[in-house]
Design a protein around this nucleic acid. Structure first.
Length: 230
DNA sequence: ACCCAGGGTCATA
DNA sequence: TATGACCATGGG
């Protein structure tokens, strides 16, 4: 391989991932993500949940609904101060107001959600990533759940779980982890959706940074006893 | 009084 | 390329 930086070292075996998925499903039950009624709500929620507990995101979403502002045109009409005020409980409200307007402006420039449906996944991903305030996880949440594209989402919980299972070191580049899973199970949109949701359910409940998951049933079921640090 | 949350950008070396 | 600072509310 001529280019060292493009090496794809992370390639987990398919059976290991499906087994992990099934154990999580047994432990937490079906999640049926994304928890939203409309695609726009998914897009808004994806920005608001950046480094933020979901409960706080729901408060902000409720504020928007109360103002009947949960539409592309209404959100884009709001002055910064007004929007930031509605986003307040989600934290980082000034930053998120700006990022949300950036993203929704890009959606409008694309011709709306219907027009974006017709775009190739690679192109759509590039358009999302080009928005200031939309990083890989936010883009992939939107791609997987709003546009139902076969893109696997990597978040802090996924990274942590993979590391504790010994599948990864934890410091891999985002795309290395994403592509590794996508290569092991190509095109499994529904499976990606459920697996990511299950990983988050597990993470919220017990896959915290400290302590390193002592007695975790998922780790134990996979042959680990919680002795893995990280 | 801590630590943490379904990240991302920017300045600096 | 790789750190560190910054953004901010709310729950455990």
């Amino acid at each position: 391989m001529a280019d060292e930086s493009s090496a794809q070292a992370f390639l987990p075996p398919r059976w290991l991932l499906t087994d992990l998925h099934d154990r999580l499903l047994d432990a937490y039950g079906p999640q049926r993500w994304w928890p939203a009624d409309t695609r726009l709500e998914i897009i808004v929620g994806a920005v608001l949940t950046q480094n933020t507990a979901w409960g706080n995101v729901e408060r902000a979403l409720n504020n928007i609904r109360r103002e009947k502002a949960l539409s592309l045109s209404r959100l884009l009409q709001l002055p910064h101060e007004a929007l930031a005020g509605l986003l307040r409980p989600a934290g980082y409200f000034n930053v998120k107001a700006r990022r949300l307007i950036n993203l929704l402006t890009a959606v409008r420039r694309c011709g709306g959600l219907r027009a974006m449906d017709a775009m190739e996944t690679v192109e759509l991903r590039a358009r999302l990533l080009a928005v200031n305030g939309v990083g890989p996880e936010t883009a992939d949440d939107i791609l997987l759940y709003a546009f139902e594209r076969p893109v696997f989402v990597i978040d802090a919980y996924t990274r942590r779980l993979f590391a504790r299972l010994g599948l990864a070191s934890g410091d891999e580049a985002y795309d290395e982890l994403r592509i590794g899973v996508e290569t092991a199970l190509p095109g499994e949109v529904g499976w990606y959706q459920e697996f990511h949701a299950l990983v988050v359910a597990h993470g919220k409940q017990r896959c915290r940074p400290k302590p390193a998951c002592p007695g975790c049933p998922i780790l134990a079921a996979c042959g680990f006893q919680g002795a893995v640090s990280g």
